[in-house]
Design a protein around this nucleic acid. Structure first.
Lengths: 178, 178
DNA sequence: TATAAACGTTTCTATGTCGAACCGTTCTAT
DNA sequence: ATAGAACGGTTCGACATAGAAACGTTTATA
């Protein structure tokens, strides 16, 4: 939730995920608010489309803060926003939050799926054991020797390909892929 | 965000994830608000702990709605909440939302991780791929043939033992938490 | 015995996002 | 030509949750 998807910037101001996304997206290429709306909708396959009542005021606010500017007021009276140098600096700091969010989101995911879990005991247990092992390792030794890391990767890759071999691929609709 | 973690119940009332979690958790076993607070904190390894200012008023509200009752006012003046029959009925409907949330959350995850890009082959990414595959499978085919199940278990067991071989066991326990 | 920590709850304000209503512009199909 | 859909944006109220302050109780510890 908010605690998971929002964070405090270096000035102590509370920021939401959308702020982070906006700056990141505008860094890549100047866009209009509407463009970003559609971009998000498509990237998430319709799972999320920010409210217009959120995104437009937010863009205005970020402009006022000097993180973005209006590049041109193009056709159809649309405003094309562009990230500023200060915006890029801010993004650099903020984007570290994306990692944290991601980790938190994954924990949150377990919470959700536990609601419709029920059964599947053995497989779930094994999976959790693997997870715990990897998490413990990361916690206790954040700096891992490349050599050891490669070994772990090889093991996991093998596991993954083995699983893919066994799992029927008829479950393809809904589209995978990023 | 809210659109991802909140939903409309059959009466059209907006509900948050916490409502769903509360009912689900109380169905399993009567608990106090504080118990649930700690339960969530531990289940998510510290990634999320609902605000007291959220959970207590919510419990009160659910009680008023008749979905839960106070079983006993135990020691330390704590209230032990218990789900009612009506609450279970409501939960049955609501829990279908958990599945949808899960799917949306996964799309959202891609959006977040796109911010810190990250090349493939990373340990975390591999792990998530494995998890996604297992979860997808569970979602799409809840009834798994024993034979196939055994194969999956064998693969995971092997992965686990391989990992244990590589990971040094000097990683004693210690602080969890984020 | 004093004190601090953990337990357990209440109340209040703040905030990120939603959703709906409303407005004007441009494109497209009939 | 006209209607309707898609584009592009503004404004405002509602809502789930956060976060902080305050308070009483029990347990552990110095």
């Amino acid at each position: 939730m908010a605690s998971i998807l929002s964070f405090l910037d270096k000035a102590g101001k509370s920021r939401g995920f959308l702020t982070l996304y906006l700056l990141n997206s505008l860094k890549e290429k100047p866009k209009s608010g509407y463009d970003i709306l559609i971009e998000i909708k498509e990237k998430t396959r319709g799972a999320w489309m920010p409210s217009k009542g959120t995104i437009y005021p937010l863009l205005k606010h970020l402009k006022k803060e000097g993180f973005i500017t209006v590049k041109t007021t193009g056709q159809r009276s649309k405003s094309i926003f562009e990230i500023t140098l200060e915006g890029e600096k801010e993004l650099l700091v903020m984007s570290k939050e994306a990692r944290k969010m991601h980790g938190k989101l994954m924990q949150f995911r377990d919470l959700i799926s536990s609601i419709f879990a029920e059964g599947q005991g053995d497989i779930a247990n094994l999976f959790f054991e693997i997870r715990d092992l990897l998490l413990d390792m990361r916690d206790s030794s954040p700096e891992l020797k490349t050599e050891k890391k490669d070994e772990l990767i090889k093991i996991l890759e093998r596991c993954l390909s083995d699983l893919k071999r066994v799992v029927p691929m008829d479950r393809l609709e809904g589209g995978r892929e990023v």
